[in-house]
Amino acid sequence: MDNRTNLDDYLAGLGISDADENAPPPPTPDAAPTAMPTLEAAHEDPKLVLERFLKGLTARIDPSLSFNIRENEDALEVEINGEHAAKLAGRDGRTLHAIEVIAYTVLAKQAGRADLRVRVDVGGFRKRQADTLAKLAERLAIQVAKSGEPHELQPMPAADRRIIHMTLKEHPDVMSESVGEGAARRLVIRPRHG
């Protein structure tokens, strides 16, 4: 069995094919949404497009998986459930991020909605990750406030940096800022000077 052909067939079924090589690349986590060219006939209901994509994806990964889609004003949020759903998170949430990028591309092509984000979670992974980052931000804020020295974190995705920024937004002793470009963008926590 030729895996390349099966993948090509699957991607073509999603509206993504080799013919799309000249299409703009998917957005990076730091990029603002930009209008992507869409097919004239491509204006299906985004929730239905995402549901169809997820049915195909989960059927191929693990047919016992289920999912729930919630609509927000700027995003469709997906919770994937099942006995082995947690494996979908991947290392540091990388698999979830990949699913989000592909789902975003599918929505842009089939629903004409390049402005709509997709957020995917499995087994509360994103919530636990947010809690861990918030606790890290609080610990580092105490350390920076005591030492008076800034602390630079390793590069991280925009969503993770945002959690830390929001955690420290109202902190009386420290402030946070993002520095660097692209995948090397990282967060620095500095003492807040009156």
Rank of each mutant, 00 (worst) to 15 (best):
G112K: 13
L107T: 04
I99L: 10
F67R: 02
A75S: 15
V101Q: 05
T105R: 12
A86F: 15
K87V: 10
R113S: 05
D74M: 12
K87L: 15
L107N: 12
N68S: 07
A89W: 10
I99Y: 07
R113A: 10
A89T: 04
L88Y: 08
E83L: 10
L88A: 15
I69R: 05
R113G: 13
A111W: 07
F67N: 04
L96K: 00
N81H: 15
A111M: 12
A85Q: 12
V78H: 05
A103I: 05
L96F: 03
K109P: 09
V106K: 07
N72T: 13
A111S: 11
A103C: 01
A103R: 01
E83F: 07
I69Y: 02
H97Y: 09
L116E: 08
D92R: 15
A89L: 09
K109H: 09
N81D: 13
N68Q: 10
E77D: 06
A108S: 13
A89C: 12
L88D: 07
K87R: 13
I80W: 03
L116F: 09
A75N: 05
R70D: 02
F67V: 01
I102P: 09
Q110S: 15
A85S: 14
R94I: 09
N72C: 00
V101A: 04
G82W: 13
G93P: 04
I80D: 03
R94T: 11
A85V: 11
Y104F: 10
G112F: 04
R91W: 09
H97N: 05
K109N: 10
E77F: 05
F67S: 01
R70Q: 00
E83G: 12
E71N: 10
D115T: 07
K87F: 01
D92M: 00
Y104I: 04
R91V: 11
G82F: 14
A75F: 02
V78N: 11
R113E: 04
Q110V: 13
R70E: 01
G112R: 11
D74R: 11
A114K: 00
G90A: 14
A86Y: 11
L76Q: 06
F67H: 11
A114R: 01
L88M: 07
Y104S: 11
E71K: 12
V118A: 01
K109Q: 14
D74G: 08
G93Q: 00
D92Y: 14
S66C: 00
L88P: 07
V118E: 05
A114T: 11
V78D: 01
A111H: 09
Q110E: 15
R113Y: 04
I69Q: 02
K109T: 11
I80Q: 03
T105H: 06
I102W: 01
I69A: 08
G93V: 00
A75G: 06
E83V: 14
R70H: 05
A114M: 07
V101H: 00
R113I: 09
I80G: 10
K109R: 13
E79H: 02
I69P: 02
A111N: 13
R113W: 07
V101R: 13
I99R: 00
L88I: 13
E71T: 14
R70G: 00
F67P: 07
E100Q: 15
A86M: 13
A108H: 03
T95E: 02
K109W: 05
A108D: 06
L96G: 06
H84I: 02
G90Y: 15
H97V: 04
A86W: 03
A111K: 04
A114I: 10
G93N: 03
K109S: 08
